[in-house]
């Protein structure tokens, strides 16, 4: 009899544990689906619920707060989704919150996201209807991404054009100018003008001389013995050297100015409007260029003409 009792006790434990586990499991599943505990209902209308089903989760601020109770078609463009929400979050969900259909992960279940809006409003109540957002769908997302890519492409092309322009166009420098520099530039440009004029003048002289030589004006012997001429030539070469030195200084100034400009020193204003100055600057630089080129040519010619050969050789030697 005792054995039988013992047996019954064990059977009782077995049955109770088994059914207890089942009930516990069913309760846990139920509580995950909000079948128990105090809840309230809200709803939202969507155009498209992308496969949302009864039992899907409802999330507020990313936390599971309820489940979808029913999904019903109301009209051709509207689907009504009724949600069961835990009472404990009622005070946090405001009337102006937005509901949207989303996906849990990339391939997971559909769910309803309730998102707060940054405006004050009252807490939601039983049977309230939330505003809804269009659900984000994968293809739509991909489509949007495509458009975005296209836009980015266009933007980057434009950007490249702009940078190109910045690199090439002087006018943009204007934005980076200041008055002091402008003054400097002005004066230096004036100097340069003067100098280049002088250079031109000298070059003109030289030209005349060489032309004379080329044309055989005066005898060669006279030329050789005529120390006056040679000294004159010497002088002119020295002058030329000086001139080119000055030119170098000017060029140094200009590069200084340009450096300043690059660094954006000084105020802009003045030069911004002063297009004529820039024009002057342009033309003067061009003149310098031109002058320098002509000078170069002249010098070469001078070198090759025989009376100066010796002199240049000497000079070379002396340099060495």
């Amino acid at each position: 009899m005792a054995a039988k009792d013992f047996r019954n006790v064990r059977l009782g434990i077995f049955v109770l544990v088994g059914t207890g586990l089942l009930i516990a499991a069913l309760y846990l599943i139920g509580s995950k689906q909000n079948l128990f505990g105090s809840t309230f209902h809200i709803s939202a209308n969507f155009n498209n619920v992308s496969g949302l089903m009864k039992g899907n989760n409802v999330r507020f601020a990313g936390i599971n707060v309820g489940t979808v109770e029913s999904v019903e078609i109301v009209s051709d463009t509207s689907v009504n989704v009724v949600m069961i929400i835990e009472n404990s979050v009622q005070k946090f969900i405001k009337k102006n919150a937005l509901a949207s259909v989303g996906t849990d992960g990339l391939m997971g279940n559909k769910l309803v996201n309730i998102n707060s809006v940054n405006e004050p409003s009252e807490s939601i109540e039983e049977d309230d209807v939330l505003q809804s957002l269009k659900p984000v769908e994968m293809d739509q997302m991909v489509r949007t991404l495509d458009v975005t890519n296209e836009n980015i492409k266009v933007i980057s092309t434009n950007l490249r054009n702009i940078t190109d322009k910045i690199n090439s166009k002087n006018s943009l420098w204007n934005l980076l100018m200041d008055t002091v520099v402008a003054e400097n530039v002005k004066s230096s440009i004036v100097n340069m003008k003067l100098m280049s004029n002088e250079g031109l003048y000298i070059t003109g002289d030289l030209k005349a001389i060489t032309q004379g030589i080329k044309n055989g004006k005066g005898s060669i012997g006279a030329l050789i013995t005529d120390t006056l001429i040679s000294s004159k030539i010497k002088q002119s070469v020295i002058t030329l050297q000086k001139l080119s030195d000055t030119a170098a200084i000017v060029t140094g100034d200009i590069s200084q100015i340009v450096r300043n400009l690059k660094h954006g020193k000084g105020t802009m204003g003045v030069l911004l409007t002063d297009t004529s100055l820039i024009h002057n600057l342009n033309t003067s630089v061009k003149s310098i260029n031109k002058g320098a080129v002509t000078f170069d040519e002249d010098m070469k010619a001078l070198q090759s003409s025989w009376p100066f050969k010796k002199y240049f050789k000497k000079q070379k030697k002396a340099k060495k």
Binding site: F14, V17, G18, T19, L21, L22, A25
Partner: peptide, 10 residues
């Protein structure tokens, strides 16, 4: 057997 199955589940 259902009880056994529940326990087996667990």
């Amino acid at each position: 057997i259902p009880i056994l199955a529940v326990l087996a589940d667990a």
